[in-house]
Structures are given as structure tokens and as C-alpha cells.
Amino acid sequence: MGKLEAKNITLRSSEKIVLDDVSVEIPWGELTLVMGPPDSGKQFFIKTMAGILIPSKGQILYNGINIYDGNIATQKKHDFRCSFVFQNGGLLANLTIYENLRLALDNFFHKMKDDEKVELIQNYLSRYNLPGIINKRPSELSVDNLKTVGFIRALMIDPVLLIMNEPFSDCELNTVDMLLEEIGKLKHRKLTMLVVNQTTANFEKIADWVIFMEHGKIVNKSKSDQQGMME
């Protein structure tokens, strides 16, 4: 059981304040949906929670420790692994799908043997019905497959925090169903998830909490069944 919180986060982008003194606790082991109008700062918020953006003020605390202190050893020491699923997959264009997935494994699992990594990648791709794409480049894949591979890459490192940016946008219905089923399983395993989505569509039954943002601030955080917008 962990405790994750953003404490007085302020972030500037091009001299504009995009996150304004944001403080919030992310419920551990639950799925939190982040919503808000365009330019409300939700993308900046999840990227800051993932350590991709460094706030000009404030900290991300994991069990009371500043987890993104500029030293990767801090995350390793506290067994904190955060994965991010990008809207466009975020796969490296000049690597094959195998190389993309292998990069994540090589970086996180130093002691894992080569054949174990190959087997793990093959197992994941088979599980998501994508065995034929292993040697393809991201540009050869459909949007659905890009998102699925991005999702696989995020899961492969066995994260304690999974952050997703618009996981279903532009996806076909069967892919949405498949990803929803997987997210449901992760929720059952009590994985902490933070998801940005434009609407509550698809998340009505699985979101535990909803955070609503406006003008770089969190204006509301509530249990999903208590949130007016969810009804």
C-alpha cells in the first residue's frame, strides 16, 4: 500500500502558468479519471505525476518521499515504477516493435536473461493478438495496434502506477472493449491508475474517482458515483 500525492505543484510552460499550486492525493489501488475542458492543464498534470515534466515549484510525494528528485536511484530504492500510455502510443519510430518493447525491459530488468525477455515479449504480443507485428515499425501499424503496443510496453515493466492519456481515442470498438477488459483486470489487481479522458464514456463503471480541472487548478475531486458529470 502506498500513498501518492502532488503537493503544491506549479508548472510553467512558455512563461504561462499551466498548473497553479495543485495539491491532491491520488487514491492508491484505485482508478482516478482526470477530466476538464481543453487547456485546463490535465495533460500537464499527468505528465508531472509521471515525472516527465519537472514542476517549477512543489513535489510529487510517494510515501512522503520526493520521488522525482532528479535521481533515478530514489525510484528504484522505493520500488516505484510508473508507466505512461501515450495518446499516440509514444513508440520510437526508428525501432521495430520488438526493439521498442525490448528497450523498456533492458532498462528496467537488468538481471533478466535475453531469452526470457524474448519470451515475455512474444507472450504479451500473442495475448493481445499481435504476434505478426514483432518486426514491424510503428509507422506500419494501425492506430489501434499502436495504442495496444504502447499499453503492452507500459504493463511489461510491472508498474505500481499506470498513467494513461486518452487511451481509447480514435480506437475501434473491439479494441476499446479489449483494453477496457484489461483495465478492469488491472483494477481488480488494485493497480493505481490515473487516466485523462475527454468524457466519462467507457469509464462509468470502472472509475473510482473523478478529478475535474480548470485553468490549471483542480476544482473538484469526488467519488465517481458522487460526481454530477458521471450521471
Binding site: 505528465k47 509521471a50 515525472g51 516527465i52 533515478i72 525510484q75 510508473c82 508507466s83 505512461f84 501515450f86 495518446q87 499516440n88 509514444g90 513508440l91 520510437l92 519510430a93 526508428n94 528497450l103 523498456a104 532498462n107 528496467f108 515493466i157
Partner: peptide
């Protein structure tokens, strides 16, 4: 050109998210 396109396509962010 390559690095610029990587920034735009979130590839650099993806590396940072993997602690690379």
C-alpha cells in the same frame, strides 16, 4: 530533424517516462 520529430511525436517523453 529526427530529434525534432521525436519530440513532437512524444517519443522523447516516452523515454523520460521509462527513466531513460
Amino acid at each position: 530533424t529526427e530529434l525534432g520529430n521525436m519530440v513532437i511525436n512524444n517519443e522523447v517523453d516516452a523515454l523520460v517516462s521509462m527513466n531513460i
